[in-house]
Design a protein around this nucleic acid. Structure first.
Lengths: 192, 192
DNA sequence: CGAAAATTTGACATGACTCAACTGGAGTGG
DNA sequence: CCACTCCAGTTGAGTCATGTCAAATTTTCG
């Protein structure tokens, strides 16, 4: 059962008792997502906090010219949602789309709040999870404001070698904030 | 007493009972910081999670050429620390330096963990605080990878008008990831 | 007041984008 | 199995965004 992956995941951070595990199992719903399927589209309210069991998603915004800009990729054992839209129930500015056939576990806002209120371990778990993701974003910002596109690409390769293997370069270019053409030139440069 | 500011701050998110308030008061220490004084230097372990009562700080990294890159500014009613260094007790890669004479409240790791264990409301409060800061970073990344330097500057002006007034442009340029010279040209351009 | 830092400006160099054309797979349907 | 399309990737030429360095000027703060 895919819920077992989630239980194992939480146990990395803190032990769960029987009641916690039962609460988890009844709060999350498994869902299969096809390639190119959206779990969130712009202007919709983000109804779910999703945990990826397998597959891969991209979260992106679309600018005035219609160009996509990848905010993040999410693979197994990680979370994906639009926090603002999810908590404040406001229309999202983002898209979340499956890049590969995927399996996810989803929880609704009401159920998550219920977990937080009745099972305090989840306040702690999600605090820690968010802190770790916050740190990763800080590092990405530092890299964005302080290094060249080539260095950001090399950093991406060494930090996410698996993503680099699974994703088309076009998607990586969008994540790095450069054009696919320029990434192609960077790759040519690196080979030498 | 500066601790009252912190209590009022937490009450924005969730009510605090008497025990919570007592615990807060005994866990945090007030400290006056001079302009240009550091509360964290590279290679030191970050010993404190700090809440700013008044004044202003910059958090920055230094690259191989010795150039500073501002990761964030922190003013009254906000938190500043190096999370990785603080929790994992590893040497920091960052500096945190007062830009103005400042007053802060600091808590040590052991005391914060004590709060988390005995007063569950703080797990929740810090979860929510970190979630909000995470969202802000996401928006900054999207802006970094999808817009021009001029648009980022205009966005900074409208999002942080107070910071724009208090900070020298050099510091803002570093935050935006551009040179002071180029920011000067952008400003000239905007005036027209 | 005086030193140090911030800002501006000019000339030039380089990083990165745009557009258009071409190449080479990876499906898809016959 | 072939012909076809479609999309990712590459390449070239030209352009625009941004950086570098140096110098002059203004502002800030001790």
């Amino acid at each position: 059962m895919s819920i077992d992956y989630l239980i194992a995941y939480f146990k990395q951070f803190f032990p769960l008792n029987e009641a916690d595990i039962t609460a988890l199992s009844t709060s999350f719903t498994a869902r299969n997502i096809k390639r190119r399927q959206f779990i969130l589209q712009q202007d919709d309210v983000c109804k779910y906090y999703s945990f990826v069991i397998s597959g891969c998603f991209k979260t992106y915004g679309v600018d005035l010219k219609g160009a996509e800009h990848n905010l993040q990729f999410t693979i197994a054992n990680d979370w994906v949602t639009d926090l603002t839209s999810f908590y404040d129930e406001k229309p999202s500015k983002l898209y979340i789309e499956a890049i590969e056939p995927s399996v996810i576990l989803q929880i609704k806002k009401a159920d998550l709040l219920h977990l937080f209120i009745h099972y305090p371990t989840f306040d702690r778990n999600f605090r820690i999870i968010t802190e770790r993701k916050y740190i990763a974003l800080q590092e990405r910002i530092l890299s964005n404001i302080s290094t060249t596109a080539q260095d950001r690409y090399l950093g991406f390769l060494s930090q996410y070698p698996e993503l680099a293997r699974r994703l088309p370069n076009t998607q990586i270019a969008s994540y790095l904030g450069i054009t696919p053409e320029f990434l192609s030139r960077i790759r040519k440069q690196i080979i030498k």
